[in-house]
Amino acid sequence: MMKTWDERVDEVWAEASGDEVGDDTIARIDALAAERGVDDARAQFERGGARDSAGRPAEAVELYRHALALGLDEEHRPQCVIQLASSLRNLGEFDDALSVIRVEEELSADGPYRDAVATVHALILASSGRPAQGLSVALLALVPHLPRYHRSMTAYAHEIAELDG
């Protein structure tokens, strides 16, 4: 039985894990993406991910933006935004990264990627010279996972963010 497109993409990523992602992985992902064409959001997202993993964030950003403009499903949109914001952070484009991740924070508030979104948000803040605000975002993401102390830890998280003021 022939494997689905998703299964073949997953196979490339599984074989690339642990290795330095390079031109070979990019070529394999690009070949799979070509089957779906330049107007396929998922194909462009995967192409961006390959370049991102190979340490080519500027190329990844362009492809992630294209994928988002084409429209991704609820599973892949948050992943794409997380990876886009992370790449923008790596490029030192902190304001752009923050605006992208803050929009996703609202969209993913109840979704499975909310903690990953918060993690990237915290990293962007820390990298942009606002580590206390970053810590605050990270702590607020942890609060729902605590067995108790929700009220006090939420208050402390808001308090600590003021240290960057």
Rank of each mutant, 00 (worst) to 15 (best):
residue 110 D to P: 01
residue 7 E to A: 15
residue 95 D to S: 12
residue 133 Q to S: 14
residue 60 A to Y: 00
residue 147 P to I: 05
residue 34 A to T: 11
residue 138 A to V: 04
residue 144 P to L: 06
residue 153 M to W: 14
residue 93 E to F: 04
residue 53 S to V: 02
residue 102 R to P: 03
residue 37 G to H: 12
residue 94 F to L: 10
residue 153 M to N: 11
residue 83 Q to P: 00
residue 28 R to V: 06
residue 36 R to M: 14
residue 1 M to Q: 13
residue 33 A to M: 03
residue 120 V to Q: 06
residue 105 E to R: 14
residue 50 A to W: 01
residue 18 G to W: 07
residue 14 A to V: 04
residue 65 R to K: 15
residue 96 D to S: 13
residue 141 A to Q: 08
residue 50 A to V: 01
residue 159 E to V: 06
residue 80 C to Y: 00
residue 15 E to A: 15
residue 6 D to A: 13
residue 155 A to R: 15
residue 152 S to D: 15
residue 155 A to S: 13
residue 33 A to H: 02
residue 162 E to N: 14
residue 71 G to M: 09
residue 103 V to W: 03
residue 50 A to E: 01
residue 140 L to S: 06
residue 90 N to Y: 08
residue 156 Y to S: 10
residue 62 E to W: 00
residue 17 S to D: 15
residue 38 V to W: 12
residue 106 E to P: 00
residue 50 A to N: 03
residue 86 S to K: 04
residue 66 H to S: 10
residue 15 E to N: 14
residue 79 Q to C: 07
residue 70 L to Q: 07
residue 81 V to Q: 01
residue 13 W to L: 09
residue 113 Y to G: 00
residue 17 S to R: 15
residue 158 H to T: 08
residue 78 P to C: 10
residue 23 D to W: 05
residue 62 E to F: 02
residue 63 L to T: 00
residue 3 K to H: 13
residue 157 A to K: 05
residue 142 L to M: 14
residue 116 A to V: 01
residue 132 A to K: 10
residue 80 C to P: 03
residue 101 I to Y: 00
residue 2 M to C: 05
residue 93 E to K: 07
residue 85 A to E: 05
residue 95 D to C: 04
residue 62 E to K: 12
residue 56 R to P: 01
residue 118 A to H: 03
residue 124 I to L: 07
residue 108 S to H: 02
residue 152 S to I: 15
residue 156 Y to T: 08
residue 39 D to Q: 15
residue 24 D to V: 13
residue 104 E to K: 01
residue 161 A to F: 08
residue 142 L to I: 08
residue 143 V to Y: 08
residue 69 A to V: 08
residue 60 A to P: 01
